[in-house]
Design a protein around this nucleic acid. Structure first.
Length: 766
RNA sequence: GGGCGUAUAGCUCAGUUGGUUAGAGCGUCACGUUGACAUCGUGAAGGCCUCCUGUUCGAGUCAGGAUACGCCCACCA
């Protein structure tokens, strides 16, 4: 099958079957396709999720729409840097910035074609000429343009503030890049001296932050400590004088009920720092080492400092208790390093003040499945930070910004000059203060700041305003990033939703229902599946589930797909010498009946595809094809096909032609290769359309409804089944001739077919 | 702790707006074909639809609750 699939893939490409037609007047159907991150190979989750998307697009194409289905890759930011570092065995931090960027660009150019090929291999019907990379010049232009737009609208700002920081990557990160990790730790009870004599005991897991202790907190209603409020405390080792403050956020039950606030250990520290106007004391630097503030511990890594400080506290007999615990901490999703909070200067996009608006917009979008919106709203409701988009990294889109050295004024380029790199260029004019020396912004934008603009990147590609697009398809894991951020940008650019419909797929799990991971060794490669079964089988399996639901990898379903494909191929080959496009004078009664059934299925399948119920549509077509068409219709029409030429035989030939064409058309969105093969072999010449995927989806025909014929036909099938059952129960061959068969209701013209197929000598009416 | 999802045959899952004996595929068993079908067909066995309470003439389906599993978020002193 693979060879044949390759052949059609090539055919589609050479004949521009999926090309967006600028000249067409048909209704546009535009798709915001996920640009996959180029950090390695396509995984089975991609294969599944993109198949779901592709099925819908193929259906819409067959409904006559003018499809805009681009394909991009996301390749800047940390994920890409890590990929390049691994691939090339280099360290970005030890390389010259420009050399590293150059290496990234070269490596991406090398790997990109093979990467994209995987998407072609699964039969994706994207217009691969509508192609972008989130780091290419055009994307840079779009990204910088809309950054400047945000700046102008006052929606982007730079601010020194406590921000989530990854000490390993040496960069700020966004809330959405955090992950939970269970980490063993120790709770230390430490004695602090009160200035006026006496002591208190606080519990902490992070004694290394002692030098940044800015205050001590107790709960306002804690009777044990009420008398201590406003008293002064001397910190151990560092001998800083700090105040005991009351705050309701202190949990009386936790530890000793007394907390030291360090700037910063966690998000509560930030709230206290801001709310109580505390002093900022920074004890950890950008690379996770102790600052000068930590005195004798400066220069040590966080963990080393913790050990040393604990040792010293023990020497001073200040540690009264140690409790081993395991607690969840936030780590950076890219490297697993524990996140710190540092006060640094970063670029932000305002999002907190417009939470309500984003929720409203979310409600304007048509979600499949409906419940996916809860995850969206839940995320927004729990947002705590504005969106930090600056990264202290190398491979990303630069901020188009300089600062006046004299007055600090922000300088920006003209839109027509974009994209620019502020490091290698200068503002055209002097600053309003008269100075002409500028400092370039060295930070780069996070990749989401660009991938959130995929609708605008697409508009830029086709030079046409098409937002809001028709559909966004993606998996549920990036609702809080890609989906949410795209809504944010859409709102800020157009005051509208970015797309009308959001299709959310689930994850692929291993056969046991567990997540696939390298460490478990249970990863399934789409490439292997395609080699063994073909892309159509992969798609058959992938469409076996509903939207938003996780799907297990199931070899059995792939085999079923294979069986279906064999069956279709066989049935079509069998019928191939008996296909006739021209209608006979009068349709044979059985054919009329079969068309009535087919017509019903067409309506049903059409409705299901429209409702995005792919797996149900698939089940209905399959059942109809296997049961009604193969087991019944083909068997019933064999006597005419094998018989002599004539009107009745022509009627059968015509019915075969029309019905097979309809059936493969209905299957086409799901198994595009097999159906194309059949179409090209038996229908292309007569139909003239260059690909089945450009033909029109079968249409429901109201005129075909005929209840009398349908009822009698159904009855005839029922009798036929009774005969089969009877023969089966008696252990007889289905070919055994039976003398007579009793029927209770009139079958009209169908009697003949029942006799022929059931091998009945005479039918007796009662 | 907050939000969401799932629970149906041995396995994987369908069950649309509540309506007679709850479906499919795989697996099992029996039989038949090998004259489209590296097979295919016919049939059989197999289900307290997780549990409880309600609404209703009627609940797998609706409402409330419980349990189990999974996911997202919060909890990091």
């Amino acid at each position: 099958m693979e060879n044949s699939e390759k052949k059609w893939q090539k055919y589609w490409e050479e004949n521009h079957v999926y090309k967006y037609d600028e000249a067409s007047n048909e209704e546009i159907y535009s798709v915001d396709t996920p640009p996959p991150t180029m950090s390695g190979k396509m995984h089975i989750g991609h294969a599944s999720s993109y198949t779901h998307e592709d099925v819908i697009v193929r259906f819409e194409r067959m409904k006559g729409k003018n499809i805009i289905f681009p394909f991009g890759t996301d390749n800047n930011g940390l994920a890409t840097e890590r990929f390049i570092e691994k691939e090339k065995g280099v360290s970005s931090q030890r390389m010259e910035r420009t050399a590293f960027i150059d290496l990234c660009n070269r490596t991406l150019a090398e790997t990109r074609p093979a990467f994209i090929q995987s998407w072609k291999d699964i039969g994706m019907s994207a217009d691969f000429d509508l192609n972008y990379s989130t780091i290419d010049k055009e994307s840079q232009k779009v990204s910088q343009k809309y950054f400047l737009d945000l700046l102008k609208k006052g929606l982007a700002y730079k601010k020194e503030a406590p921000i989530l920081w990854c000490p390993l990557c040496g960069t700020a990160v966004a809330q959405a890049e955090l992950e939970d990790k269970n980490i063993p730790s120790t709770f230390y009870d430490i004695d602090f001296d009160l200035k006026d004599g006496g002591k208190i005991t606080i519990a902490t897991t992070r004694p290394e932050l002692l030098s940044s202790c800015s205050a001590i907190f107790v709960n306002n209603e804690d009777e044990r400590y009420k008398h201590l409020i406003s008293k002064k405390v001397i910190t151990p080792i560092f001998n800083d004088e700090v105040t005991i403050i009351a705050d309701e956020k202190v949990d009386k039950e936790k530890g000793t009920g007394i907390v030291m606030c360090c700037t910063f250990g966690d998000t509560t520290d930030i709230e206290w720092y801001l709310g109580h106007n505390l002093e900022l004391k920074t004890s950890i630097d950008k690379f996770g080492k102790m600052t000068a503030l930590a005195g004798e511990f400066s220069g040590l890594k966080i963990k080393e400092a913790r050990e040393k400080i604990v040792q010293k506290l023990k020497e001073e007999n200040r540690i009264t208790k140690e409790t081993s615990i395991e607690h969840l901490v936030n780590v950076h999703e890219r490297c697993g390093t524990e996140i710190e909070i540092l006060s640094t200067s970063q670029w932000f996009i305002k999002i907190l003040e417009n939470k309500e608006k984003f929720i409203e917009r979310g409600r304007e979008i048509n979600w499949t499945p409906k419940h996916a919106i809860h995850r969206y709203e839940n995320w927004i409701n729990n947002l705590k930070w504005d969106w930090c988009i600056s990264r202290q990294r190398f491979f990303g889109i630069p901020f188009p910004v300089w600062y006046c050295e004299k007055c600090g004024q922000i300088m920006t380029p003209d839109e027509k000059d974009l994209p620019i790199d502020p490091i290698s260029s200068k503002p055209k004019n002097k600053c309003s203060c008269g100075s002409d020396s500028f400092i370039p912004e060295k930070d780069v934008m996070d990749t989401w700041a660009t991938s959130s603009l995929t609708p605008q990147i697409l508009e830029n590609l086709i030079h046409k305003k098409i937002t809001p697009l028709n559909v966004r398809a993606q998996a549920h894991d990036i609702i809080s990033t890609w989906l949410f951020y795209t809504v944010v940008r859409g709102e800020y650019i157009n005051n509208s939703i970015p797309w009308k419909e959001a299709l959310i797929s689930g994850f692929v799990l291993d056969p046991k229902g567990e997540k696939m991971s390298k460490s478990k060794g249970n990863i399934v490669e789409p490439k292997d599946v395609i080699e063994k079964y073909g892309a159509d089988c992969l798609r058959y399996w992938a469409t076996n589930t509903g939207w938003g639901k996780d799907i297990k990898y199931d070899e059995n379903e792939l085999k079923n797909g294979k069986k279906l494909i064999t069956k279709i191929t066989n049935a079509c080959n069998f019928a191939s010498s008996n296909l006739k496009k021209e209608a006979p004078q009068e349709l044979y009664i059985l054919d009329k009946y079969f068309f009535i059934k087919l017509n019903k299925v067409i309506k049903e399948v059409n409705d299901l595809y429209t409702k995005r119920e792919i797996s149900q549509a698939k089940t209905i077509i399959e059942k109809f094809f296997w049961g009604n068409f193969c087991d019944n219709y083909l068997e019933l029409s064999k006597s005419r096909i094998y018989g002599e030429d004539g009107e009745d035989k022509d009627s059968a030939k015509y019915t075969l032609y029309k019905s097979i064409l309809s059936i493969i058309k209905m299957f086409a969105p799901i198994i595009p290769f097999t159906t194309e093969e059949i179409y090209q072999n038996y229908f292309f010449e007569k139909e003239g359309v260059k690909s089945i995927h450009l033909t029109k989806f079968p249409e429901f025909n109201e005129k075909l409804i005929d209840e009398d014929i349908e009822r009698k036909g159904d009855l005839m099938i029922k009798y036929l089944e009774e005969i089969r059952k009877m023969k089966s129960e008696k252990g007889l061959s289905q070919k055994t001739e039976i003398e007579s068969f009793k029927i209770t209701e009139d079958l009209g013209a169908f009697e003949k077919d029942l006799k022929a197929t059931g091998n009945i000598k005479s039918i007796v009416k009662e």
